[in-house]
Design a protein around this nucleic acid. Structure first.
Lengths: 140, 140
DNA sequence: CTCCGTTTCTTGACTTGTTCAAGGGAAGTT
DNA sequence: AACTTCCCTTGAACAAGTCAAGAAACGGAG
């Protein structure tokens, strides 16, 4: 769990200005992965007192573009964000409750998998989503 | 390429009523894979003369639920539909132009891949999206 | 073949997540 | 400390998809 100084360093290293909304959003994404935008707006407000939703949207875009956070969006789910970035891990998604859990990639580096026939594409990433039912939904 | 009678058979086999909108949408999905909803509305109207967008949305939901078509939705793309179903193939997606191409699954049956640690999930499918650049975007 | 009940389609309004735009305010540079 | 640039606020707009009520069509029964 990085502290405020770490987060500030991350932003500067990415060539971004350090602002309170950016620190708050980045902190929230580190604190709890796989939150959707609305939850992140809430989490940012808990940290700052007030932020516009537009600011959070802007910050998330900037952070995503500069590679500080990763956006994921399984089918049927809203956009979600996580701070684990650059390790090409994958996700388990529950068909019932939508819960998302990280899975380490067996290989580690992207693309961890190569298509049987790449159709001439220059492939740089293999995104894998494992669909199933989480333990508590299986029980119910 | 199935003809009208084949499509009708598919619908009946799935326990669905045979209606003109359903035949038109199903035909369009077979004719050209990976179309989005708006394109399918257009393709259906080309076949029927007139259909409401709502009817197409309803038909797509019913066809998807009954397994006659598969819905895919890579990040940054609208919902798209394809008739290749039940063979657990995967997709190549171009980061620039959004082109989608099928890739056969090396294994064939779902889930073709199993997570390193399933976290207690009952996994039934591994969805794989290969991201990269298509030949013409690579050239440009 | 016709009638009837149920499903499906039409019409039109609405929701939701996200984006656009204009102006005031803060970050960081000199 | 002043200035320039970028960021945040406010409020409106947008687009894909959904909801709801009534009309039409499917297909089973007589």
């Amino acid at each position: 769990m990085p502290d405020a100084a770490d987060l500030e360093r991350l932003l500067r290293a990415a060539g971004l200005r350090v602002t309170r909304p950016r620190l708050a959003v980045l902190d929230a994404v580190h604190a709890e992965p796989h939150l959707d935008t609305e939850a992140l707006i809430g989490a940012s407000r808990a940290r700052l007192g007030a932020v516009s939703h537009q600011a959070v949207y802007d910050v998330l875009r900037v952070l995503t573009d500069s590679g500080l956070v990763r956006r994921i969006q399984p089918q049927g789910s809203l956009a979600r964000y996580e701070a684990r970035v650059g390790d090409n891990h994958h996700h388990l998604v529950c068909r019932d409750c939508g819960a998302i859990v990280d899975v380490d990639c067996a290989v580690g580096e992207a693309p961890c998998l190569t298509p049987s026939d790449d159709g001439g594409f220059a492939v740089d990433e293999a995104e894998v989503v494992f669909w199933g039912r989480c333990p508590s939904c299986t029980a119910a």
